[in-house]
């Protein structure tokens, strides 16, 4: 069902939804930017339309709503272990199509990889419904169309934000409140961006060989990348973490085990006891990430991991562009294949 709402009516609708849902959307965090006095856009809980930040891309992805940066896995007290309870109020997240597709990639890892389901991810995931933000223009660094992630259909509701009105299409009937039944109905199918300024060509999965891994391309990144890991933390599809134990008392056995986000670009990601590590050079880290995003994830799950949100380009302090890297890689692979 489609409905057309004035900004005021939309606010009443949000208010009604908030009885049942916590609503998350991109919000402006004042003074939390990279440089003093600058702002950053990240996901946060909202109360009204005014809180939603739509004219710039969010620096951080919505993944922290379902996969917190730091999460207690369990507390222990003497010989008992206990997973903490979480707020079980259902969540509605406003996401763009690329991020909605990105969450599908997180699902692959946390829900489908191996025999086990990730308890912590799954219990939050079950609480979540998606309000997809119609996105037809994108931003400068986006390349979602090349990654086939400009279109998403698994939303519970779609929203078009115009200057003076908001149109919604509600798929999940439980999201229909009486505020909507009083509103004008409208015929609304969300449109999707059809062309980005940035385009990439992914090298054919099977044409990437050991030679591609050894190519001097990666050396360039050894000299440029500083292993800060921002590309990992801002990425909607990066899902790695490390466990951390914390002791709250020395004499009594009280403490907790947590997990915190980790990233393959950060030094120490592969360090083993004894000091051995497997990807010392930053170019090797870049190569590892690149292959995961556009080559080996595909071999496992039959879909690429990267959704082309372009955040890794936005956040890199060294101006390393992932889309350029993909295109360079493609040129190299084509060259290699021609010479076979």
């Amino acid at each position: 069902m489609g409905y057309k709402l004035s900004p005021l009516a939309f606010d009443y609708y949000l208010k009604a939804l908030r009885n049942t849902y916590r609503i998350f959307a991109p919000v402006l965090q004042k003074g939390k930017g990279k440089f003093a006095g600058t702002d950053v856009i990240s996901y946060g809980e909202i109360n009204s339309l005014d809180d939603i930040m739509l004219d710039r891309k969010s620096y951080f992805s919505p993944k922290e709503v379902l996969y917190p940066i730091r999460e207690t896995l369990f507390y222990f007290l003497n010989d008992e272990t206990k997973a903490p309870a979480i707020n079980v109020k259902p969540i509605l997240i406003l996401v763009r199509p690329c991020d909605l597709n990105g969450i599908g990639k997180l699902d692959r890892v946390f829900l489908n990889n191996g025999q086990e389901v990730d308890f912590y991810y799954a219990r939050r995931r079950e609480l979540i419904k998606f309000a997809m933000i119609e996105c037809v223009e994108g931003f400068d660094t986006c390349f979602c169309v090349s990654m086939d992630s400009n279109v998403a259909n698994n939303y519970d509701m779609a929203v078009r934000f115009d200057e003076d009105n908001i149109t919604v299409k509600v798929v999940d009937k439980s999201l229909i409140t009486k505020d909507l039944t009083h509103a004008d109905t409208a015929i609304f199918e969300p449109a999707f961006i059809q062309e980005n300024k940035v385009k990439v060509t992914i090298p054919e999965v099977d044409l990437v060989t050991k030679k591609t891994f050894d190519h001097e391309l990666w050396e360039e990144y050894t000299s440029r990348c500083i292993a800060c890991g921002r590309c990992n933390t801002s990425c909607i599809t990066c899902s790695c973490y490390t466990m951390q134990d914390i002791k709250l008392s020395d004499d009594k056995k009280i403490g907790e085990r947590r997990r915190v986000w980790a990233g393959c670009h950060i030094d120490g990601f592969t360090n083993m006891a004894g000091g051995h590590n497997f990807r010392k050079k930053n170019g090797e880290k870049m190569r590892f990430k690149t292959m995961h995003k556009i080559n080996d994830f595909y071999k496992r799950f039959n879909e690429h991991m990267c959704v082309g949100c372009g955040r890794c380009d936005d956040v890199c302090p060294e101006y390393i562009s992932f889309s350029k890297c993909i295109n360079k890689l493609n040129a190299i692979v084509r060259e290699e294949t021609l010479h076979e």
């Binding site: 899902s239 490390t242 980790a262 497997f278």
Partner: peptide, 14 residues
């Protein structure tokens, strides 16, 4: 093989 491991169940990525 020996590699760094955090989870043992295909989630942590290490």
């Amino acid at each position: 093989f020996e590699r760094k491991m955090s989870c043992g169940i295909g989630k942590c990525g290490h």
